[in-house]
Amino acid sequence: MRLLSIAAALALLATPALAEKTSLSVLKLASSGPVFLAQDLGHFAAEGLEVEFKFFAAAQPVAVAVVSGDAEFGVTGLTAGFYNLAGKGALKIIAGQSREQPGYKLSAYMVSNQAFAAGVRSPADFGGRSFAMTQVGSTFHYMIGLLAEKKGFDLSKNRLLALQSIPNMVSALQGGQADTAILPSTVAVPMMDRGDAKIVGWAGDETPWQLGALFTSPKMIDTKKATVERFVRAYKKGVAAYDLAFQKKGDQAATDKALDILARYTEQQKGAIAAGLPYIEPEARFSARDIAKQVAYWQAQGQADKSIEAKDIVVTTFVSSID
């Protein structure tokens, strides 16, 4: 009898266990590269995870999907809306994703042709100019805030235009209705090439910051900690593959292969992807201090609830902080 049960247990161990199903909400952008690589190179499978991707068009729904339970993990940019959700105890940051970093052309400072002709030639000239962004509390909103802080202009003198979508921003910049904007390189470079607007700098060079993160719900950490650990391990391998392919660049074959994978997942041209790859910390670490600075900034602006404590949002047990 005992022999039989031991045999059964051995059999269970020997046969590969059925992969555990989990899900990830994500944007079809190059900044999501590590998860695409982890999926395609089999790192998730190796951890016994079958990850279903849920694609969204904006950062906000990515976070909401994790709160609503439609996805167990999410990876995207950090917005004031994200912090308001996280502040209600619905989200925890567990690993880093993209960062604005000197030398990486991720987000462009753009100037309309009219404003350029009127003398707006560098990010330092953005003071007092109308600025197009997607939404109040968006990453673009934060970056103009960082720029104002660095260049010492008073943001309240800028007319901030929340236009809700990137096509609307492009229109406003083209028509000269907005003087300035920050746009992703995938949009900014073609606009510059068409002569519709001018790029006068890159946010990574001026104001590096922790742009994106991997997050999950507190409930996942409480009830399925092992799953979270396996997921983060696979994610870190994806980040390492990303680092090798695009940041260390030792192995041309690995770079080409990774670019192929990203092109397939993001449905974008390889050239466009290669031109706008963000920096990702090679060990998927993030800056808890930078997160705290973001929370404080939004609180000071009145966009985030005063009750939010940055330290409650980040979990450094899976990946350590840079600081």
Partner: peptide
Amino acid sequence: EMIGAEFGVGAYILTAGNLMR
């Protein structure tokens, strides 16, 4: 009020949605 409105009930709703309030 999606078009760069600072004030307005619509702009208020949009901002509240964006900030998840």
